[in-house]
């Protein structure tokens, strides 16, 4: 464990908590893409199957359980409890266009051709594009609530911090995982324009408005 990965995990946990609080407190999931939340639930389910097979540490196990439970709780809140506030008119990204390529790529490019490893690889590829429905929704509505942009900033920062973690592990532990690194770079790049808008607007107290 290193400080970059710890900060990354905490940023990830913060994002998930911000989102749950936003939906629970405002009793509304307006401005949130349910499709992205479904993709995240799939990402954690397919990535953390090793909870059943290998024990790495209490921290690792607890965080995986938290991420799985929180992602399903979010999907439940959006599609069941606060379903009336779900913006299905704007949340129209076709997630099959993300799921199928990620699965095909995972079958073609992986570390070893076993069920667990292919599913882990699938979850890595899927996570890198899982935020696209959310960014698509924000671009369609042209704006995002401040709390939603804080959620996105924390979520984007988590994988950006993981990039630093991978640099650290390469130089200090002589360890690297090319599949995770390439997908992590793609994932972070997708946030770039949001990061720019967040830093230039939201941090100055303005609302996140995308140029129409």
């Amino acid at each position: 464990m290193n400080i970059f990965r710890l900060l990354g995990d905490l940023s990830h946990l913060l994002a998930i908590i911000i989102l749950l609080l936003k939906i629970w407190k405002t009793r509304s999931c307006a401005g949130i893409s349910g499709k992205s939340q479904i993709l995240f639930a799939i990402v954690y389910t397919t990535r953390y199957l090793d909870l059943l097979t290998t024990y790495i540490s209490a921290y690792n196990t607890v965080m995986k359980l938290v991420f799985i439970v929180a992602s399903y709780a979010t999907v439940y809140l959006m599609y069941v409890k606060f379903k009336a506030t779900y913006d299905h008119n704007h949340d129209t990204f076709r997630i099959e266009f993300l799921l199928v390529p990620a699965l095909i790529l995972a079958l073609l490019i992986n570390h070893e051709f076993t069920v667990l490893e292919v599913l882990w690889t699938f979850s890595i590829y899927l996570e890198s594009v899982a935020i696209l429905p959310q960014l698509f929704l924000v671009s369609k509505t042209g704006e995002a609530e401040s709390i939603t942009s804080h959620y996105l900033f924390a979520l984007g920062s988590y994988r950006a911090l993981y990039l630093l973690n991978w640099v650290y592990r390469y130089f200090v532990e002589d360890h690297y995982e090319l599949i995770a690194i390439v997908a992590g770079v793609v994932q972070t790049i997708l946030y770039c324009d949001f990061f720019y808008l967040y830093i230039t607007k939201v941090l100055k107290g303005k609302k996140l408005q995308l140029p129409a």
Partner: peptide
């Protein structure tokens, strides 16, 4: 060393 199938990251 390329890490194989024991993924220790979240």
């Amino acid at each position: 060393t390329q890490n194989q199938s024991s993924h220790d990251e979240l």
